[in-house]
């Protein structure tokens, strides 16, 4: 998605950019979503060893069936960075590309 940038501290202050993509969405392939009973737009919970995030699903064919993707431009409970691994290169301290094991299911009804 093109309307948000990095932490969102600049781009989440601009109305039209937020209108384009207001909340993070969990992108997944139909072959992953269908057996779990997840339809496009359903609220889903992504869990890792480090945390969990609940957001609407984006069920599209433009992602690998074994992969979930969540954009990271939101803070607090909507921050997917709480779920991923905070490893850095030991010398340069550059963060690694974030990839980790995750579990996905439909969100429990609130």
């Amino acid at each position: 998605m093109v309307s948000q940038f990095l932490s969102g501290t600049q781009t989440r202050r601009i109305g039209p950019l937020l209108d384009h993509y207001p909340v993070p969405r969990v992108e997944m392939h139909p072959t992953l979503a269908q057996p779990l009973g997840i339809a496009d737009g359903d609220r889903v919970t992504v869990e890792t060893r480090r945390g969990a995030l609940t957001a609407p699903a984006l069920v599209v064919g433009t992602i690998r069936p074994d992969t979930l993707f969540v954009p990271y431009h939101w803070p607090g409970a909507q921050s997917v960075n709480r779920l991923t691994i905070a490893a850095q290169d030991p010398i340069s301290k550059i963060p690694e590309y974030k990839a980790c094991a995750a579990r996905i299911h439909r969100a429990a009804e609130a």
Partner: peptide, 17 residues
């Protein structure tokens, strides 16, 4: 008044961006 007069339509988002 801040409304866009051009828009981008997805051809079929489930198949392609």
């Amino acid at each position: 008044k801040g409304q866009t007069m051009i828009q981008l339509d997805y051809v079929d988002r489930s198949l392609s961006t």
